[in-house]
Amino acid sequence: MRVGELSRRTGVSVPTIKYYVREGLLPAGRLSSPNQAGYDESHVRRLRLVRALIDVGGCSVSAVRGVLEAVEDPSRSVHEVLGAAHDHMAPKPGAEQDEEVAEVRKEVVELMRRRGWRVDGSASAVRSLAAALAAMRRLGHARFAAHNLDAYAEAAERVAAVDVAYVTGEPSREDVVEAAVVGTVLGDVVLASLRHLAQVDASARRYGAGPVPPPPA
């Protein structure tokens, strides 16, 4: 198919498709003439993945590029690709309050040790978690970690087990890797949205909100 048809099938404009090719997010089409390139179903699939990561997952172009480079590296295991996805997608905390974050990070590492998690202590998510907990302390909510962190960790373990079970059911390495990336990025959106909905329900039950109209069919 030509680029116009690729654009129609994916809803991505031709200039954006060409931009993604230049940025390395989409493989170039096969040249059929000096000014014409042909595209196939693999380009449709890749474009839909890129748009989902950017539009729904909120990823930057550079983050998507880094993840796709890991996906396309056949020497990397699925576990390594998943780690790369986490590193590229994780928030990048600022340098403020480094000493406090470093202190809280020790508690995060101890949590992982206590729960037997086989995770590198230098993982970006470790610093992100430590930065969030340190910010809570500065806001006067140090009790959050003492009261909630283990319960959160236990819930996260259950979610992670479901994630890995889903990925394992895919038929090929390409499908497994794509499912891992989709589950990591879009799964975070799903989980956060479900949590927000459940919080609204829990609040209504605890604080006696009035009847809520049912969701639209």
Rank of each mutant, 00 (worst) to 15 (best):
R114Q: 14
R46A: 03
K92L: 10
R205N: 07
V176F: 00
Y20T: 14
R206I: 11
V67L: 02
I54L: 11
S172Q: 06
G169A: 11
A161C: 13
G66T: 03
E174G: 12
P91Q: 12
V101G: 03
V212G: 05
G38N: 09
A28D: 15
R22G: 09
P34G: 10
A135Y: 07
V109D: 02
R195C: 00
R137I: 07
L197G: 14
Q199I: 07
K18M: 08
V50G: 05
Q36W: 11
Q97R: 02
V182I: 12
G94V: 12
H147N: 12
L25M: 07
R48W: 06
L49R: 03
R173Y: 08
A95Q: 09
C59N: 00
P15W: 13
S60E: 04
R65L: 12
A142V: 14
A134M: 07
H43T: 01
A180S: 15
V64W: 09
G83F: 03
D120I: 01
F144W: 11
V162G: 15
P215D: 02
A95E: 14
V12S: 04
N35G: 14
E154K: 14
G94F: 11
A156E: 13
V101W: 04
L191A: 12
A63M: 04
R105M: 06
V71R: 06
V101C: 03
R51E: 05
A102T: 14
R30I: 07
V181E: 01
V159W: 15
R2E: 08
A123F: 09
P93C: 10
S60T: 09
G169V: 13
T16C: 00
G183W: 06
I17R: 01
P215V: 08
G116C: 02
R195K: 08
S203C: 05
V189W: 00
R195T: 04
H79M: 02
G187S: 07
E23N: 04
